[in-house]
């Protein structure tokens, strides 16, 4: 069977709720130690990784 190698192929286009495309946030994200900075780093890390496959338990979060 032909199976997808990345989960994004069936996900369609993505439109984030918080549009900050015109704002210089990299410094804030890289330097922060709060949950938001951590989340942003996670999103950036996942750009070249087939993350986002649902797992049943918490240790799946890398």
């Amino acid at each position: 069977m032909d199976v997808a190698t990345t989960p994004e192929q069936s996900a369609g286009s993505w439109s984030p709720l918080v549009d900050l495309t015109d704002r210089p946030l990299l410094e804030v994200i890289q330097g922060g130690d709060d949950a938001l900075a951590r989340a942003a780093r996670r999103v950036i890390r996942a750009l070249d990784d087939p993350d986002g496959i649902i797992s049943a338990f918490q240790s799946a979060v890398s």
């Binding site: 069936s10 996900a11 984030p16 999103v43 649902i54």
Partner: peptide, 19 residues
């Protein structure tokens, strides 16, 4: 938070990721 920033989820409770 990751979903709000445009990322994906790895859990069953939120997001559109495949199981």
């Amino acid at each position: 938070l990751a979903l709000l920033l445009g990322g994906a989820s790895g859990s069953e409770q939120v997001g559109l990721s495949p199981a």
